[in-house]
Design a protein around this nucleic acid. Structure first.
Lengths: 358, 358
DNA sequence: GGGCTGTTCTACAACGTTGCACAGTAGCCG
DNA sequence: CGGCTACTGTGCAACGTTGTAGAACAGCCC
């Protein structure tokens, strides 16, 4: 049915292998031959059969990006950036949605789709430090996020503590003294919530403010609805606060909604800053200050690392952890105009050996 | 290196074909044999080599979804829905971002990635009615959106005119008399802008309101920024209006931002409704009324149609156009509480034959 | 008991491509 | 002019799977 190399070879009067050589850019081919083959390809509308090539070369040219959900803007924008970066390097991305469920995240590492692609960029949300063993895999893997540290894989993460601290200090620099944080996850040892809450504490300390448990509010998961509820409850409880640090932008947008509903002026009565700097933040009412964690750099770095691993043949290079620079972007919700008011520098370091584990 | 069927066969003491039969659920296998094979698969950690299977079966189990950009919430949510629907049916989705460029959209229909997948769900934005010829392809194709009508392919689209008319009538029912529309695309014959603007005109007519060109504002492309600008200019121009119909939610959110910046109360002074009902709409400040075009149904239908085409072997079935029901969701921006205030019914009909074209 | 149907398993030959090895030819150096 | 290197092109044998065809055997009906 479909046109194969054989047909092209016949038409161009060369061997099938020569067609293959032309298609693959093998240099030792006479210009005239090359042109004849290319003409035949054009005339017949020949396309390489990827399945056959993949079988032969043991490569698919595909990589998987596993994220919780595309309908969460942060992950949609991350996916956009990863696809673009991969595209520029000649790779195609297959997206897997895990819904942040343990089962689906485990499946991503071992399931039936695993072998479809040459490597995996994985942003886990359900799996955590107790599941380190699952991450010892025999295929190229780049881990994103803050759920898992020390796994035997390259890791691109954020400057969470430093950035959260900077965000808190930013609120303090406006003269706010009762700074609330929403999105805390009580009792969690690892993950963005723990790290950012830690940064919040450090920020308070550095600003000379005391830590008040009444100002630390849970919100699970990090959605607009839970952010709205957290702030709503805080208002209903009669807690006194003049600033809110929302641990991500979805929470912040929900908080904004709740504050508005309660007729609280932002930033007049309450200053607000989020985290992630999603596109929405810029167009919220009022425009939302946020922490830009360096998303594009994260995507680019993840693709670079993964492609490097896929290409590596011999001795496994040591695993690296990369942390891009992050930035505090001040907008109306903290009384500013959209300028960068602070940069936290990242860097690259080797991954510490993971503790042995059964 | 990797475990193959051959290894499993050897270990289980059966032929390689029997392993294949077990893996593929062929029924005539003794229970004991099946168990032995499954045990061997388990012990060796065998996984089917997809490239080999794909080569042999001429199927990849992949479908492509081509959209402009994932960072646009509407498309992110659409992608989410398509991936979920495909997943449930055992298919894997590969996303292609076109950036709404002609070149990339053309490439989607014929480029090097085309043959990687068994079919394509395509939401064009740059290609239009003049490019109908490009859509005569020899692979399963489902078209989404309003750019192209009459192409020889299945088509899932929205109830644009009816829904836009209903949205306009909704604003009129609130007693608004100066209803502006933003996002018009002057001179465009096809596409969402033209259809929704048409619905707007129909709505005005039915409400007994006159059409005022000063109330029809361009915005290209449909982004928050252009929506904000359109409303900003209208305010600067001193145009009198008491309601805005934004042709999509991004425009509406931008409009909301601009109205807020100009201290115009929504819905007090100006009522606002968008189109698409993205997640953001619910959490905007104030919550945004919108038209829910039936996104989940669109995604599900698109996948169903495509899978059906892929599976079809013999005579090509006639192409269908499917229009899901759409709904007007009233929220704060039109003084309501989130209830559905209107339904426009869709349906299925055969695609009219495309005009012959060189 | 001959022929039929139903069950269980297997051998063989592809699917379309590329890696490897090698056959030529031509040019160049000493 | 012998031998070396640089080109240019080809044939063969995989890569790992599944479709087709059929062997072998049992049970059943007439």
């Amino acid at each position: 049915m479909a046109v194969t190399m054989h047909d092209v070879a016949q038409r161009a009067g060369v061997s099938i292998k020569t067609v293959s050589n032309v298609v693959n850019g093998y240099p030792y081919i006479r210009a005239a031959t090359k042109e004849r083959v290319e003409a035949a390809i054009e005339e017949l509308g020949y396309r390489v059969n990827m399945s056959a090539r993949n079988l032969r070369t043991r490569r698919t040219g595909l990589i998987t990006l596993a994220v919780p959900e595309l309908s969460l803007p942060y992950f949609a924008e991350l996916a956009d950036a990863v696809i673009s970066a991969a595209d520029a390097a000649g790779w195609t991305v297959l997206i897997e949605q895990t819904s942040a469920s343990r089962e689906r995240e485990t499946e991503v590492l071992s399931g039936r789709r695993r072998h479809l692609t040459d490597g995996l960029i994985f942003s886990p949300l359900a799996l955590g430090p107790d599941d380190l063993g699952l991450f010892s895999v025999d295929f190229p893997l780049v881990i994103l996020g803050e759920r898992v540290f020390g796994a035997p894989a390259d890791h691109v993460t954020m400057n969470n503590v430093a950035a959260a601290k900077a965000a808190t200090l930013h609120l303090a620099s406006l003269g706010r003294r009762r700074i609330a944080v929403i999105g805390a996850h009580e009792g969690e040892r690892a993950g963005s919530a723990a790290l950012r809450t830690e940064g919040y504490r450090e920020g308070l300390a550095e600003a000379g403010l005391s830590y008040d448990p009444a100002l630390v509010r849970e919100a699970v998961p990090w959605h607009r609805s839970t952010g709205a509820e957290a702030v709503g409850r805080m208002l209903d409880d009669g807690v006194d606060f003049d600033a809110v640090f929302a641990l991500n932008d979805a929470l912040a947008l929900g908080a904004l909604h709740a504050l508005h509903a309660h007729r609280v002026d932002v930033p007049g009565q309450v200053a607000l800053i989020g985290f992630d700097d999603v596109d929405d933040a810029r167009f919220a009412v009022p425009a939302l200050s946020s922490v830009d964690p360096g998303r594009d750099q994260i995507a680019q770095t993840a693709v670079d690392l993964l492609v490097e691993r896929i290409g590596a043949s011999g001795d496994p290079a040591p695993f690296r952890r990369v942390v891009p620079d992050s930035r505090i972007v001040g907008r109306e919700s903290t009384g500013e105009d959209g300028s960068v008011v602070g940069v936290q520098h990242g860097g690259t370091e080797p991954v510490a050996a993971a503790p042995a584990r059964a």
